[in-house]
Design a protein around this nucleic acid. Structure first.
Length: 429
RNA sequence: GGAGCUGUGGCCGAGAGGCUGAAGGCGGCGGUUUGCUAAACCGUUAUACGAUUUAAAGUCGUAUCGAGGGUUCGAAUCCCUCCGGCUCCGCCA
């Protein structure tokens, strides 16, 4: 959510930021908002004058009645009789205008950070070379993960389709266990070593929570909605970030770092035909999420730190990966800057996104009305929020299968994971 | 599913048609005292929009007591609808 005052004061920056994100009509949009804002304020001015006259008369009527001067009271009442309708009409218009402006603002994405690379789509993303890790393993004729999983008879798309349709999977045996191992492994790293607090949050949330993080009102078609009005979370970011919704925190309590391992649910509307094989793009998947709630000055540093935390998981699993700074045209709605982590998949012979770490600045804080009291300052500030996957578990499982496949079809278990896998070295049929 | 209660500032809590942006307490901020800390004491303490001003401060006006609507010259207070929260009963992991 944008601050109307910021738009008022710096309309050029606002429009420039939006057009960097690829909004062609940014200039017109900015002007439209300011026109409505101006209309609203001049309406308010007229309304206030009428209200002042009414209040003054009401006070005099009260005084007259107290002095038992009924004649004077009646005369005054006659004077303000016409004001009532005028005020009611004015209030109605004011509400409608306010709502319009709010609706427009609620649908506008965050402005990109100054150092987010400009660009139109994923082809313009820029690698953060210093963050690259490892090298692709030498595998002769590598298989894709679904071929490996199905051959192991521990990854079953056909039966899942029978039960739930496309974009679902059944893992079983060691692969089901691998999913559990990965979740526990990741949580242990983040809680023991990086100071994140483990949280087990609701998976069904209300409209307000979805609005707070920015999924609503614009992206409802990407979400599952229950008949009783709940939304299924597409990421634990929603539950964890809204933890501070409508609260005022002490700066001393920041940063607030939370992690959760949850299922995520995505309708995947509009991605028909994309990633139809395998478990890259499911309606339901498991993910360990990181969320940081921080003071305004520290969000940039926290973003780097969070990305380190996510990369650390991949490093311990020995997985080759690179980090991309998303260009302005490829970033999500709420983000001002995003790093995607892409893991190398030998079976696909390409890098694939396995994590996305975003700094949302105060964008979500303002939508959620989540504030903090800065030390030594009088006024409240909106918290800055960050979220990152660390990591998407389904895709991590894919990466392990493809990177650790053996010629006999078995899968070597990365050493860091073995304590979580009953000490086993391999997954076999 | 049935029955009832409740929503006031940063927090707790009073107010039950006008003098209430709202008592009191806690917290926050500033200060006095003190070797330091604590305690005590004093002061201060919401936001938005507008007017005034070269600007800031200040002053004034308007709105805001969950949200919206209604009654009234006048609503935190009365009425209606909605939304949250809580309790009990039933069912259930």
């Amino acid at each position: 959510m944008h601050d109307i005052r910021a738009i008022r004061e710096q309309p050029a920056q606002f429009a420039a930021g939006l057009s960097r994100r690829g909004m062609g009509e940014a200039q017109a949009l900015s002007e439209d908002i300011l026109t409505r804002d101006k209309a609203l304020r001049s309406l308010q001015q007229r309304l206030q004058e009428a209200q002042a006259r009414r209040n003054d008369a009401a006070r005099q009527i009260g005084a007259a009645k107290a002095q038992k001067d009924e004649g004077r009271a009646a005369a005054l009442m006659g004077e303000v009789a016409g004001l009532r309708e005028e005020i009611q009409k004015g209030e109605e218009e004011e509400r409608a205008l306010k709502l319009e402006v709010e609706e427009i603002l609620a649908a506008i994405p965050n402005l990109p950070a100054g150092d987010a690379p400009d660009g139109a789509d994923e082809n313009d993303n820029v690698e953060v070379v210093a963050r690259r890790f490892g090298a692709s393993p030498q595998i002769d004729k590598p298989l894709e993960h679904f071929a490996l999983g199905e051959a192991l008879e521990q990854m079953d798309f056909a039966r899942a389709a029978k039960i739930s349709g496309a974009r679902f999977v059944i893992l079983s045996g060691a692969l089901a266990r691998l999913e559990r191992a990965l979740g526990a492994f990741m949580l242990d790293i983040h809680t023991r070593e990086f100071g994140y607090r483990e949280v087990s949050p609701p998976l069904l949330v209300r409209d307000g929570a979805m609005f707070g993080t920015g999924q609503l009102p614009k992206f409802h078609e990407d979400l599952f909605h229950t008949t009783s009005g709940y939304w299924l979370i597409p990421t634990a970011e929603v539950s964890l970030t809204n933890y501070v919704n409508d609260e005022i925190l002490d700066e001393a309590d920041l940063p607030l770092r939370m992690t959760a391992w949850t299922p995520c649910f995505r309708a995947e509307a509009g991605s028909a035909g994309k990633d139809t094989h395998g478990l890259i793009r499911m309606h339901q998947f498991s993910k360990v999420e990181l969320v940081s709630i921080v003071a305004a000055e520290s969000s940039d540093a926290e973003h780097e730190r969070m990305t380190d935390c996510a990369q650390e998981v991949l490093k311990r699993l020995g997985l080759h990966h690179r980090v991309m700074a998303l260009c302005t045209g490829d970033m999500g709605f709420a983000a001002k800057k995003t790093y995607d982590i892409e893991v190398w998949l030998p079976g696909q012979n390409r890098f694939r996104e396995i994590s996305s770490c975003s700094n949302c600045g105060d964008f979500q804080g303002r939508r959620m009305n989540a504030r903090y009291r800065p030390k030594g300052e009088k006024n409240l500030k909106f918290v800055h929020t960050l979220n990152g996957s660390a990591l998407a578990i389904g895709r991590t499982l894919v990466a392990i299968l493809e990177n650790y496949q053996q010629t006999d079809g078995s899968i070597l278990i990365p050493e860091a994971l073995r304590p979580y896998m009953n000490g086993d070295e391999k997954i076999t049929k």
